[in-house]
Amino acid sequence: MQYFFQQIVNGIGDGAIYASLGLALVLIYRTTNIANFAQGEMATFSAYIAWQMVDWGVPLWWSFLIAIAVSMVVGVLAYLLLVRSVQHRDELTIVIVTLGLFLAFNSFDGAMWGFLQLSLPSPFPEKSFAIGALRFNAELLGTIMILIAISIGMFLLLQHTRLGTALRASASNATSAMLVGIPFTAMMAIGWGLAAGLGAVSGLLVGPKLTLDPNMMGAIIIYAFAAAVVGGLTSYRGAVVGGAIVGISQALSMAYLPWLGSDLQILLPLMLIVAVLIIKPEGLFGSTVVIRV
């Protein structure tokens, strides 16, 4: 039984990472109605920026902050230079352009830092605490606390500031928002910047756990999409709960279904995506989309 609860604890730790990237996906989907397939590669880019800073001798926490700031600027630029011009075109165009962004970031990382594996130091100490029979290491607690901080920060920003209200207004009704003087393009760019920052956090959390290479987020982005889809793609709460569901089910299947082998473990989040999309496409927390004809 203790083993079971330990797996759940570990699963929540991984789930927190998926949730942070999932939140980025939801944020972009809600503000600009785009599923950003490049989100994972943008996070990898952030991890490389942090690695570069550390390599140049910048203290670790400063490196991470710089990486997040740079990522936010890159997110804003990606929107202004590229996404903005195709935002109102059909879904096919948008999907193809974000796939183009995916490849662009992936090959930029490869060209700049090579395809060899690098290691990013962890910001957390190598300590662990025991509560009863369960063990929590500092990394796990740190990850969960960061996710909680992000969630509270996003809630306060979106619900209790003028900027957040303006962001939500632009996303829900662009024309009315513009009529009351909210700059639409600036809001969309800020949405992309914030999402890139959230993605950067997930990249910085994943970097020390795995080894840093251009395809680092390849599997993580699938888990994050699974988290976002389970939560309904439009709900921040859904992304967090979805992240936990995906993380826990992944940990449990690794512990109790060893015959699946390391290759087939990825099929679990994939099955979750398929099941949710077929049975309940609006997810656990999403709102049903009504199309006016």
Partner: peptide, 22 residues
Amino acid sequence: LGQAFSGAVYGGILIACMTLMP
């Protein structure tokens, strides 16, 4: 032209075609 380049070629072509020559 290099391992990274093929991705760059595809990415660039996808974006350029979709925005300039749909």
